[in-house]
């Protein structure tokens, strides 16, 4: 069940069960006595695999990058990815790509990324992703990044994620700004993201978590 792509610091810390998980068990246990076994407290059934972080070395703006992965919910309840953090990033947000006025833009996700019970979500370039911002150091291919994912059931997953080169054009998910008109004047197309305009478009609730 544990992720094989990622390097848990130890199997013990792969899943840290919080209050929410205990609550979840309590709720499901109301229905039948079998539910206790179906949702053991130590395992909420969320498995993360195929995680990687895009290298920033040589990019236009090495202060930010994306983390990508597949998240499978093998449990019985829907779960949301609600946040993330990393020691290498000053700030981490969940981002999505969306069509706004005919243009694909990147913006912070309001709320979390839902992973339906029995299904998976793919975070990938050009789609939902974990946005690492305020990077102090360049991330080079071959580096590793520690990443903590926070889920709506109160669980966390601590991962060590490889940094990989991604050769596709940067603009694929580093789309500047929320609207074409908000490009900073000097920014080349597909270059650095306009964080100011993006933040201004998605301010509410950003510091207190998505929920």
């Amino acid at each position: 069940m544990s992720s094989t792509l990622l390097r848990p610091r130890s199997t013990r810390t792969l899943r840290i069960v919080g209050l929410g998980a205990a609550l979840l068990v309590g709720l499901t246990a109301c229905g039948t006595s079998e539910a206790d076994e179906a949702a053991p407290a130590e395992d909420t059934g969320v498995a993360v695999s195929d995680a990687w972080v895009r290298a920033t070395a040589g990019t236009d703006d090495p202060s930010m990058t994306g983390a990508f992965m597949a998240i499978d919910n093998e449990g019985e309840e829907n779960v949301e990815l609600v946040g993330a953090s990393s020691p290498v990033a000053g700030k981490v947000e969940l981002h999505e790509m969306a069509m706004v006025d005919g243009s694909m833009v990147m913006r912070r996700i309001e709320g979390g990324i839902e992973i339906e019970a029995g299904f998976g979500q793919v975070l990938m370039p050009g789609g939902n992703h974990v946005m690492l911002m305020g990077l102090e150091d360049e991330l080079a291919p071959g580096d590793e990044v520690d990443l903590v994912l926070e889920f709506s059931d109160g669980t966390e997953q601590q991962l060590t994620v490889p940094v990989k080169e991604f050769t596709e054009e940067e603009g694929h998910y580093h789309e500047p700004g929320t609207e074409p008109g908000h490009h900073p004047s000097g920014s080349p197309s597909g270059g650095a993201m306009d964080m100011d305009s993006m933040d201004s478009g998605a301010e509410e609730g950003s510091e207190d978590g998505p929920r």
Binding site: E96, G118, Q121, M124, G127
Partner: peptide, 16 residues
């Protein structure tokens, strides 16, 4: 991946 931005897929890692 073909579907575009946000994507959801049946469990696959489990099969591994």
């Amino acid at each position: 991946a073909a579907a575009g931005a946000a994507a959801s897929a049946p469990l696959t890692a489990a099969a591994v």
